[in-house]
Design a protein around this nucleic acid. Sequence first.
DNA 1: CTGTTAGCGCCTTCAG
DNA 2: CTGAAGGCGCTAACAG
Lengths: 355, 355
Amino acid sequence: MDRGAKVVTLQDVADLIGVHKSTVHRALRGDPRVESGTATRIQAAAAKLGYDPEANQAARRLSQRRFGNFESPHMVALFFPVLFSRSAYFLRQFHGFMEVMSDSGFDVLTRIVGNHEWQQFPSAVARGDVDAVVSLAHESQLMELRAQLLALPGSVQRPFITLINPLPGAWSVTADFRQGGRLAAAHLLDLGHQRILTIDGLSNQHRERLVGIRDELQARGLDPAKHLVAIKPDETISPWHAQVADSLDRGLAKAPGVTAIIAPNDQVAALLFTLLAKRGRPVPERMSLIGCDDTDPLLGPGHQNILTSVALPLEDIGRATARMAMALGSKPRSEVLPVNLQVRGTTQRVGSGRT
Amino acid sequence: MDRGAKVVTLQDVADLIGVHKSTVHRALRGDPRVESGTATRIQAAAAKLGYDPEANQAARRLSQRRFGNFESPHMVALFFPVLFSRSAYFLRQFHGFMEVMSDSGFDVLTRIVGNHEWQQFPSAVARGDVDAVVSLAHESQLMELRAQLLALPGSVQRPFITLINPLPGAWSVTADFRQGGRLAAAHLLDLGHQRILTIDGLSNQHRERLVGIRDELQARGLDPAKHLVAIKPDETISPWHAQVADSLDRGLAKAPGVTAIIAPNDQVAALLFTLLAKRGRPVPERMSLIGCDDTDPLLGPGHQNILTSVALPLEDIGRATARMAMALGSKPRSEVLPVNLQVRGTTQRVGSGRT
DNA sequence: CTGTTAGCGCCTTCAG
DNA sequence: CTGAAGGCGCTAACAG
């Protein structure tokens, strides 16, 4: 484990051949000026000694700086929210991301977003030794993270990439939430549902889906005001599930005729499933239910997932982000991936009762 | 995003004060030889300009190498198995690890263990720019990963730390599996169970637990040969669950009087739960069942976990590993953390029938 | 086609 | 107490 063991250097190879180190350098770079005979001899010697200019990255970078050349460190930073490990939502993105990065030989420097003043640490991020900074963090943390990054000395600003949540002036990879709303609405309308309930305001993503739902209604000549009931949750209520229960009850009171619900995510869907059963509206017999994200299964009697859900291509989002991080253009761009609907057991034709 | 923006240098500070850069260097290191007046002026100027020697790590490392000083890069590499994201087993260790690392300002370089010849990539690991290499990979992958690391040029060997699975000549953090076996056995014996079935040979960890089970029996003056039935699974059978079913059936045939089973992990326990019900031995009424690891809940009617299980302190293992990686001694050591038994609903007093 | 030279920014020794 | 000088290993310009 001795740190100081000798590393093969340009000079070592030069000494072996009896030539100047510049010549070795040129031969190894494939410079056509070196005589082909010596070139091959040099290459052989370098290979034998195991010479690798990358090994002395410090020297290389120092030298390159002089001429304004900055080669990629082949490393990106990835920031996680604190409680990422509980949620398939983040893990699947992470998995896709790591898959591409590991295959491409990029180093990924992970870090949890907390309230650390992390820029004061001797971090590769703070030094600017990364090609890009990627963040999986929650919408609410992105702004502050960005601000911390911008507070770093001017020379180390790195491109910032967000997943799911686009940020002005930054790169992003996200999904077509609006299309997700359309797909969910189309599915319900095809099944004959005419009054749809949803809970609004929980996230930008779901707001975007609402636009899609309205798009679909209008495309079929239906008035959203009549066929869609969007309940705003009462933010003063906590805990979380009490807020959902309140929203549901207000929704049912306002529009007793609803036969379908589009939940803002799968966890809310699972809760609604239980709440609806208690209120004499079992799913799917008397109410169709669609989740969103397709991250949390709702297990039926056979232990399989029965929740119809708008699926996000989370692994693909991770993969696309990795590719974006490795080939950044000069100006921020946003990539939007398609979504699809996973039809399972919580939706059925309106009024068809017990299956 | 301009990479080439100027970084504050030692010379910049020197110019501002009108002093030589060596003096600035000395003042910033707290060298007592500099006159206290100039020292404070220099420190103020450095702070104003935002000078940080860490920012030019390339220059610093290059220079330090000359005198044989090698400071810590404050970075460790962490290797994952390919399908880590499906399993709480890895995630909980990862989470504990990241928590401590992020709090300490260490960079964590993550990588998935695949069949990449990753050392050929320009990676910080291959350059030896990490303090340690930590592996979460499966037992079966550790040897090859280690071999790849050892195949790197001699100068870049880094300490290797494994979690759960100790490896000769390497550092490790693991849990007291033997004690886990004792706890499980003690719990069952306390409940009056006199014949215990288990499946042997699936992992080193479970073999260690078997030793603990026998310890406990002997400590109570019971002969392990009479009170413990350890079935070796038939490795030729696949898939996995068919192998478990076969083991169970052979166990029940060999020792019809068993009233309790210690499964090698929670997934096997969940499977056994179902298999036992089909064989007219419902858990816990006619058979007590203990899982191991406490990673996969077995959901009961109320959606809560009903599986009694030997719990591994996975987050703590991750945290301990992080601390070990940051403060490695000169020779490998192994840290063993205590385990505990989570008593839930799948174990009950022998013969007490329906609850 | 090849050798020489200079310098990236820092750290340390040597000289004043 | 402070300045000067040299070199870590590499790269690119400049000479031959």
